[in-house]
Amino acid sequence: MPPSSSGLGRWVLIPVTGVRVPLGVFIMTNTNKDQENTSFDEQSRFDELVEHYPYLKEARDYGVDIQMLMDNADRTPAERLRRHQSALNALNMLKGARKL
């Protein structure tokens, strides 16, 4: 389930429309296959973003999680590194997981 769509959220200000898109309404897909199933609305918002940030298309085609990347962009270095440590902790837990 996407995050809540109420409120302004912390997301990019789309210069064309002047509207700040709530995070919960704007879910990026990160594979070309998934792109076939995205709604026209989401695709057109992505296209607007790509016009503004040209490397986004390359990032998406490379398989980068665009939503995560743009969310990180809005965080402070300390917040990003906290997230990074959480991911690392999860990775280390998995390493120690017992196979059943």
């Binding site: 980068v64 999680d65 995560m68 990347l69 990180n72 962009a73 965080r75 270095p77 990003r80 590194l81 990074h84 991911a87 690392l88 990775l91």
Partner: peptide, 11 residues
């Protein structure tokens, strides 16, 4: 890179 916002995890 992570501090700048990249998504990869480094060990």
């Amino acid at each position: 890179s992570a501090a700048h916002g990249c998504t990869n995890v480094t060990q």
